[in-house]
Design a protein around this nucleic acid. Sequence first.
RNA 1: GGUCCGUUCGUCUAGGGGUUAGGACGCAUCCCUUUCACGGAUGAAACACGGGUUCGAUUCCCGUACGGACUACCA
Length: 512
Amino acid sequence: MSQEVRVRFAPSPTGALHIGGVRTALYNYLFAKKQGGKFLLRIEDTDQARFVPGAEDYIKEALDWMGISPDESPWHGGPHGPYRQSERKSIYKEYAMDLLEKGHAYYAFDTAEELDAMRQRLTAARVVSPQYNSITRTQMKNSLTLPADEVKARLEAGEPYVIRVKIPRKEEVRLQDKVRGWVMVHSNTLDDKVLMKSDGMPTYHLANIVDDHLMKITHVIRGEEWLPSAPLHVLLYRFLGWEESMPTFAHLPLLLKPDGNGKLSKRDAEKHGFPLFPMSWTDPDSGQVADGFRDQGYLPEALVNFLAFLGWNPGDHRELFTLEELVEAFTLERIGKSGTKFDINKAKWYNEQYLRKKSDHELAAYLTADLKKEGIQIPQDNAEKIVSVMKERATFPADLWKEGRFMIFAPETFDTQVAEKKWNADAAKVLTAYSEKLEALQEPLDAATAKELLAVSAEECGVKLGKVMQAVRLAITGVGAGPDLMQVFEILGKEELIKRIGFSLKTLGIAG
RNA sequence: GGUCCGUUCGUCUAGGGGUUAGGACGCAUCCCUUUCACGGAUGAAACACGGGUUCGAUUCCCGUACGGACUACCA
């Protein structure tokens, strides 16, 4: 019998979700759905000092926007709640006591200063890595060194203490990681990590093991930064008697900065002008606003596709995947091992691809929304026509309006470079003739007619159409590049064209 | 420093003991075209290095170099 696959994404609410965290969430989601299992979200808020208001709402909104909402979470609830660690405080204590009783953990009363002094002493003695371990714990104030009655007295007196794990002196700890294979470390390189803090909260190490077990998590998919502490986690499963049901681990390669090396940071994002967060985030302390992918015009389906390919690939040559297709194709086995540099160009390319897949109807909504901000209203069918000719050249929805301004506003100035090179008396002659033909036209202008009339006008003036085409474009749009001119003409309509021709003839002159 | 992890075009990557080392982004050129863009075609561009193992290694093993993560009463 195969048990239900259950995975979790476990962010701590310390601010906006980092894009790397979003990818971790996505991989968890993809794996869960592929396996027909559950994707849960657990808030790891055991560090009260780092709690940031609004962060949890942000996480929820970001995942919803990406289309990867969890099945169980603080806000959806579920059979294994609560899903906020701060609300599970009493649970952890119970397991810490269990560890204490079994001799796998002990009380420690050392103050921060004493800890510091120990590290300094060790550093001075040229100990390579000063840590609280099987050697040093014999010289510290803990329930291993202090007489039992003193420990009891200190506890009863309410003296602050932590509970530390007692790492065995000599043991090989192995774990099989789904992406790295076998990883082996010696327990003597591990230190006696704090399990329960003096404020009564568990540390990540205890909390994540207890919760994963209680929440019946089958696979732990998380960032590579957790790999060094994974052996400790294996040990904890063993000490708690849960080794049989220990989840499978998969440590994801890190997201690296685009140039040079190192973990992707906010600094890099700013330097290269791309966001680091899925959505904009306002720091509640400084009030500083950091831009997000959503705000810069990235489509969620593009971001999902892009992120999925940062460290994973389907093994064939397909590049474009919907969320559903990703679910279908996803396997842990195809996750790469090495760190991945963040290339925003590729993200833009994905955005273009998905933008072009959208219907004119959907795209028109972006345009009308932008226009509304400027107090402009245009008919829906007009908006749809505009986006249909503009979408091939847009990366972001906002480009529809930015690049297509001339579709609504007549040019007030003309690109001087193009004017110098292309504007001449021939162009003025042709346009004058063209304007007259448009005046005489009874029915509404369509692209084919627009072209025919223009061709006739050129012929009458004894000018080759190709020679003046750029000048015509300049006269109507003000610039030298843009979508198919005749389509533009059709959208503009003859009255608007006549007006624009009149203005450009006046402004650019008829002699050239 | 220590522990762990990694290394195929500039980037994301496929591949795997014998291949013209494949694709995508970006770049260049050409075609399409009234321009730009789209699209199409073509091109430049990679197995970090040194030892093994082997008839043969980019692929397997070991080193070296380089890079990264971790090294908190943070997660």
